[in-house]
Amino acid sequence: MNIVWTVLGIIGVYIYGVFLMGLGRKISARVQLRYGPPVYQNYIDILKLWTKKTNISHGIMFDLGPVFLLTGSIGTLLLIPIAATEQLMYFGFSGDIIVIMYLMVFGSLGFALAASQGANPFGIMGISRALTLLAAYELPFILGIVILMMDANSASLSNIISHQAGGYMNWYIFKQPLAAIPAFIALLGMMGKQPFDIPIAPQEIATGPMAEFGGKYLGMMMSSHAIFMTAKYILFVNLFLGGAGNPINMIFKVFLIWLFPLFVGLVYPRFKTSQAVRFFWGVPSLIGLIGLIIHWLR
């Protein structure tokens, strides 16, 4: 029975993630005074990519790339409690935050190998940018996480959630704003949306890591992105918005956080790689450090 719930949860997150991607396109179209594609456009895109008649492959690692990505995404999702109901906790009860943070890079690094074997210099360039960006936003993110760990005196995700019980003023986003600010700025980098879409950058390096992928590969990557993106939002809801008692609540909270990178992305143009690193290691990290010191002295 547990397995059925697990599969249902993965499928639900997948459908919701693809829906959010489509909705994002619609909203950004409206902001730019366009009509925009229908909200279900991304389902069609994925279907089309899956049903492409031919695909090309550069070798075994190239084939395994999307598999790595999906493994990383679904594995991360399974370690994060979706809702506090018994069925949707999965393995989240043992969700140590450091384990989650290391599992999160599993897929990306596996995919990096695939992009490398694609032998397209743009792909390798994109990966090198992506890894630089990862190192950049990891600093404010870990600062935020460490403050939360200090507050809850635990690295377990379920303990961090239970520390936020009892009203929205107990949520860490309000209780620990100096942890929330760097972490949410790091979220912008994690999402790879506009100011930090350095690794993709279609106008500069032709979609970077994805340059050599088409057909079913690209379809799987879009699917994986939908799951991984939603998993990250769910992680943030658990960390800062006090988790959720039921799936509906979680869907609503994820939607709220999802709006933040979307709107920031619509306003700001792209950074250079070095600018992004300087940005993340500058003000957000400083805020996090101040928060850490304040919490330490208290």
Partner: peptide
């Protein structure tokens, strides 16, 4: 399971040489 779905069940790709890139 992903390997079975993606590599074995879905359409087989055509192998291309390493210089055949879309750059």
């Amino acid at each position: 399971s992903m390997f079975i779905i993606f590599v074995l069940l879905m359409r087989k790709p055509r192998k291309v040489s390493q210089y055949d890139i879309a750059m």
